[in-house]
């Protein structure tokens, strides 16, 4: 196979790549944050006593779980303008990814809530605490402790999902790789580098998150 590797191409485009990486991380963090908020409300809705609320949450998670992310992105960016709702591409992407994250968080939070021994809630009731107080002082803190590993790991998942933003021309990392490839035809250098950047970032994230987890565990 005749191929002259020229990694200088990569060096010349390094700011583009780093910018793309930064944008990808930003998109992931935003989507995680909004997703957590959505998931929190959704989780409580999913265990509410109103059957309509529970059914709505089931519909929400089922749609998100079974529909390809790319189609959801296209719907929010290309489809919604047809009924008058227009977003900037980054906004459209973050909204879509947040909704996906929210559905995932719903399941995680609900499991986290159900993992709390019911005896603790009864203890709170026996003391005379109201439902909102039990929620804030007993359920929420315990649930957060349960779900922290899953939530932080999901950040890594979302980071990988940001690669789909390239489909609607958001200049994150994958888009940059395609850009380099079309401009210089250096397929190997571009994709190997970007692959390694993703790999390295995922492992770095995992390492940092595990460190934080351990610190929090000790603090308790």
């Amino acid at each position: 196979m005749n191929y002259n590797f020229d990694f200088n191409v990569i060096l010349r485009n390094i700011d583009g790549l780093l910018g793309g990486l930064g944008l990808a991380l930003l998109l992931a963090v935003f989507s995680l944050s909004i997703g957590v908020i959505i998931g929190l409300f959704a989780a409580f809705a999913a265990i509410s006593r109103k059957p309509q609320l529970r059914a709505l949450m089931i519909a929400y998670t089922t749609v998100v779980r079974n529909t390809p992310l790319l189609i959801l992105i296209y719907i929010s960016y290309f489809g919604l303008p047809l009924i008058g709702i227009t977003f900037d591409r980054e906004v459209a992407f973050v909204i879509t990814l947040s909704l996906c994250a929210g559905a995932y968080m719903l399941d995680v939070f609900r499991a986290g809530l159900q993992a709390i021994p019911p005896g603790l809630i009864e203890a709170g009731q026996a003391l005379g605490l109201r439902r909102s107080q039990i929620r804030m002082t007993i359920q929420l803190p315990m649930m957060i402790r349960n779900v922290l590993p899953s939530v932080s790991n999901y950040l890594i998942s979302l980071f990988k999902d940001t690669s789909l933003a390239s489909a609607i021309a958001i200049p994150e990392l994958t888009y940059q790789a395609n850009k380099i490839t079309t401009e210089t035809f250096r397929v190997f250098e571009a994709w190997i580098t970007v692959g390694l950047i993703y790999l390295g970032t995922c492992y770095l994230l995992a390492f940092v998150l595990r460190r934080i987890e351990r610190k929090l565990a000790i603090a308790r």
Partner: peptide, 9 residues
């Protein structure tokens, strides 16, 4: 550690 889309590319 690599997004599916990148594996495809």
């Amino acid at each position: 550690g690599i997004p599916g889309l990148v594996v495809i590319f």
